[in-house]
Amino acid sequence: MGAKDIAESAYIRAGISMLYAHWEGFIKKSASYYLEYVNFKKAKFSVAADTFAYLAVKRDIDELSKTRDHVFGLRVYRDIIKKMISDEPLLFSTEVDTGSNLNGKRFLSILSATGVSESKYEPYFNLIDEALLARRNEIAHGQFLPVERDSFLETYDDVIMLMRWFKTDVENCASTDSYLQKEA
């Protein structure tokens, strides 16, 4: 292996780490900005799509599931019901948690939280988990991982495509008010 091959191998490994960082940061920020947008629109519970109504009561549900105190639990339950039938605007956390490892399962959760359909992304979950995240983790933890140039370029193209899809889908969600219930 010559100096040129060694340098190319190092650049490819660095490229995987950078590609992963770009992937995670882009998805996390884009989703968070969209959730901020939905919060800003102040949609009412009565017309909000289920995923956003759920986000608005998630903290209450978490509290409810942890308590053993019936009086407290009943109060939280009544608060949830009151919110669900009220005309008060949604308000929820816009924090997006990737766990510093944006794998297919966490990405699916982000897709669900933003109301973006997962159907076209699902075939790429293995790519996210294996070709991107697993490789990044191996490299970041000091393992020497030989990666072929063509394999890296294919992963790069696919990840950039996924990010473009997500950008377009989030923009479409915003422009079509998909945070609201669909009329029957």
Rank of each mutant, 00 (worst) to 15 (best):
R164E: 15
K120D: 06
A7F: 15
A49G: 04
V57A: 03
E130L: 12
T51A: 07
F72D: 01
E138M: 15
N137L: 11
H70V: 15
S178L: 14
S119D: 15
P89D: 04
S151Q: 10
I139E: 03
V47K: 05
R75S: 10
K58D: 00
I80S: 00
L74N: 13
D150M: 09
F40G: 01
Y156G: 00
R68T: 14
E122G: 00
A140T: 11
P146G: 04
E63G: 07
F166M: 06
R164K: 15
K167V: 04
L111T: 06
L180K: 11
L74F: 11
E122K: 05
K105W: 08
L111F: 08
K58S: 01
V47M: 06
D60V: 05
S175H: 09
D50E: 14
T114H: 01
S46G: 07
A140L: 10
E8W: 04
D158H: 05
K58H: 03
Y37S: 05
H141D: 04
T176E: 09
E130W: 11
L108T: 08
D50M: 10
R164C: 13
L162S: 07
T176G: 01
N137Q: 12
I139D: 02
R136G: 03
S100E: 10
R106V: 08
L162Y: 03
Q143T: 08
S117V: 11
V71T: 14
Y156M: 10
L90A: 04
E8A: 12
D158T: 07
S46Y: 09
A134R: 13
S112Q: 11
T168K: 13
I16A: 00
Y54M: 12
D157P: 03
A56P: 09
R68K: 15
K120Y: 07
E122T: 13
E8V: 12
S93Y: 06
A31Y: 10
R135S: 03
Y77R: 12
A3R: 08
V76S: 01
G15N: 08
G115P: 13
A134K: 13
F166Q: 01
G25T: 13
S65H: 14
T176V: 04
S119I: 13
L108S: 13
R135E: 00
R13T: 02
L133Y: 03
A174E: 09
N39M: 06
G104L: 12
E154G: 03
R78I: 02
L132W: 12
Y33Q: 07
N103H: 06
G2Y: 10
Y54N: 05
F92S: 00
M161S: 14
Y121V: 05
F152D: 01
K44A: 14
K167C: 05
Y34W: 06
